[in-house]
Structure formats: structure tokens, C-alpha cells
């Protein structure tokens, strides 16, 4: 098999895997899940679990998985477009696939125990995000014109690797929440719910920044392109205020807003599909236009973050001091 064909396969596999995984992630989490009997599962003593922390942890796994799915599909397409010129461009595919599998595992796992392999994977994902951002920054900076609009528009997207960083962080948080069955959930000594809400809020702002940049590149030619730069910052503000506020609040509006953002994230795929159709040849010319048009896998990263927001709010509801 020649190399381009291999690349085609890798990219296709990446997209397919992320789609399938995302579907199962979203459906499995709503169903009641039996404790899995996978090999990977930690052999556990049967401790008395706190269902709320486990629930929140699984929701965080789901959020991390959604983000990882988005990254897997997005980096498959974009790095395929870049012909995997640099071997390192395979890394996010591998790592996000692993993160995705881990998150699936976590979503299905009912036990109140952190899992070493999951922890390791999530840390790896976070590290990949950091290193990837470095790579992308370097790529932009070395182009003629340096950090100019031209290069932030068309060079490696600076914000993109942040999504896998966020996925890793959320996954890491998930493990901390999960193991906190007796104590109050804490992350680095901070109340877990609030910490996650703050991280998620920051993530929403960062993702808004990226959407804003790329939609600016598209000159906001369609008014709907304003949605992902207006709704998420409000969500971020709501989450931040939840993180900073006192206990005992219900956050009904915030939760409602997070659901709205989740919906927006998935609806974004539809809008981007429409955007693809507006390129020369439309969907008949899919093999070119998926690469040219707006990235189909990008908008669900908003959904991933909003799901994390919901998990954090759930946790705060169950543990008012979390």
C-alpha cells in the first residue's frame, strides 16, 4: 500500500472511530450501565460508593470523551489535509483515540475508584495538548509575517490543541471526583465542582476565541456564525459565577444554558455541513470540500465543554461545598 492510501485510511478511521465512539458515549451515559467486566477495569474492592460522585465522574468522562472525539475527527481531517508532513502530526490522532477509549471506559465504569490507566491517559492527553499548542505556535511564528492575521488564519490553528488539553484536564478531574467517595470531592485542594466549573468556563472562552477567529476569517458571512461567539461566553460567565458563588444555589438557568450550548455544539455540525455544501461542487465533491469547508468536527467541542459544565453543576448540587 502506498503512503497516500495509508493516510486516507488513517484519516477515515479517525473520523469513523470518533463518530462511533461519540454515539456510544452519548447513548451509554444516559442508559443505566452495568459494571463492566473489561480486562482494563481495575480489580476493585467493593466499597460502598457515593452514587453522586460516581455519576458526576462518569459525566465528566463523557465530556472528556466528547472533546476527544471532536479532536480525533478534527485532527484526522486537518492533519490529513496537511499530508502528515511531520511525523508528530500522528500524535493527536493516537492520543485522542486513546483518550476516547479511556473515556468510554470511564463512562461505563460504576466503581468509585480512580483508575491508573485512565489517569495516565488523561495526563498524556493534557501533555499532548500543551506540546501541540507549542508546535502550532512555532508553526505560525516561523511563517513569513510572523503572528499576523494571515498566519493565525491559515497557519496551524493555535487554539486547536487546547481541546485535547481540556479533555485531559476534565478526565483527570473525573478521576479525582470518582475517588472522593468519602471525603468531599477535591481537586488540588480546591472544591471539585467549582474547580471544574472554572476550568470549563475558561475552556468555553478559549473555544469561543478559536471560533471567533475562524468565523472572522469567514467574515461572519452567515449571521448564524455569531452564535458560537455569543452564547458560550455567557455560559462561561454563568459557570464562573457558579464557581465563585456560595453554596445552596440551584443554577437552574446555568444548567439550562449548558444544555443550550450542548445543542448548539451538535447543531454546529449541521451548519458546517451546510457550509461544506456551499463550496464548489457541494457534497458531490465531498472529498475536497470537507477539507476546504468549515470543519465538521469542530463545533462539538462546545458540547463537550457544556457537558462538563453540567457535570460540575451536578456535583455542586449533590455536594454543596464541592
Amino acid at each position: 500500500m502506498n503512503r497516500p492510501a495509508e493516510r486516507d485510511l488513517i484519516a477515515m478511521a479517525g473520523i469513523a472511530a470518533s463518530g462511533l465512539a461519540l454515539a456510544s458515549l452519548l447513548s451509554s451515559s444516559s442508559a443505566r450501565v452495568r459494571p463492566p467486566r473489561w480486562r482494563l477495569a481495575a480489580p476493585g474492592r467493593n466499597r460502598s460508593s457515593n452514587p453522586e460522585t460516581v455519576k458526576a465522574a462518569r459525566r465528566l468522562n463523557r465530556a472528556a470523551g466528547t472533546l476527544a472525539a471532536s479532536v480525533l475527527a478534527d485532527s484526522s481531517v486537518e492533519h490529513y489535509r496537511g499530508s502528515f508532513k511531520n511525523k508528530a502530526m500522528y500524535t493527536p490522532l493516537l492520543v485522542s483515540a486513546l483518550t476516547l477509549a479511556t473515556s468510554l471506559h470511564g463512562t461505563a465504569d460504576m466503581r468509585p475508584l480512580a483508575h491508573k490507566a485512565r489517569d495516565a491517559t488523561y495526563l498524556l492527553a493534557a501533555a499532548t495538548g500543551l506540546v501541540g499548542s507549542g508546535f502550532h505556535l512555532y508553526n505560525v511564528g516561523k511563517r513569513v509575517g510572523g503572528f499576523s492575521w494571515q498566519n493565525v488564519f491559515y497557519g496551524a490553528p493555535i487554539g486547536a490543541p487546547m481541546a485535547i488539553l481540556l479533555s485531559g484536564l476534565l478526565g483527570f478531574c473525573s478521576e479525582r471526583v470518582r475517588e472522593a467517595h468519602r471525603t468531599r470531592p477535591r481537586i488540588f485542594r480546591l472544591p471539585a465542582g467549582r474547580a471544574i466549573a472554572a476550568v470549563t468556563g475558561a475552556g468555553l472562552l478559549g473555544t469561543t476565541g478559536e471560533a471567533g477567529l475562524l468565523h472572522f476569517r469567514g467574515a461572519y458571512h452567515n449571521p448564524f456564525m455569531l452564535l458560537p461567539v455569543t452564547l458560550p461566553p455567557i455560559g462561561a460567565a454563568l459557570l464562573m459565577s457558579a464557581a465563585g458563588g456560595g453554596p445552596g444555589r440551584t443554577h437552574r438557568f446555568t444548567r439550562w444554558w449548558m444544555r443550550l450550548l450542548t445543542g448548539m455544539g451538535f447543531a454546529g455540525v449541521g451548519f458546517h455541513a451546510y457550509g461544506v455544501s456551499r463550496n464548489m461542487g457541494g457534497w458531490r465533491n465531498w472529498s475536497q470540500n470537507i477539507l476546504n469547508g468549515p470543519p465538521l468536527p469542530a463545533p462539538p467541542s462546545f458540547a463537550g465543554l457544556a457537558l462538563a459544565g453540567l457535570a460540575a453543576l451536578g456535583l455542586m448540587k449533590a455536594h454543596p461545598d464541592a
Binding site: 476569517r217 469567514g218 467574515a219 458571512h221 456551499r278 463550496n279 464548489m280 475536497q288
Partner: peptide, 12 residues
């Protein structure tokens, strides 16, 4: 065009 406009396609 660097983005779609009506029925006109962006540059390829």
C-alpha cells in the same frame, strides 16, 4: 470570494 456569497462559491 474568500467565503460563500449567495449562490457564488468561494475561490478554489
Amino acid at each position: 470570494l474568500s467565503a460563500p456569497r449567495g449562490l457564488a462559491r468561494p475561490c478554489v
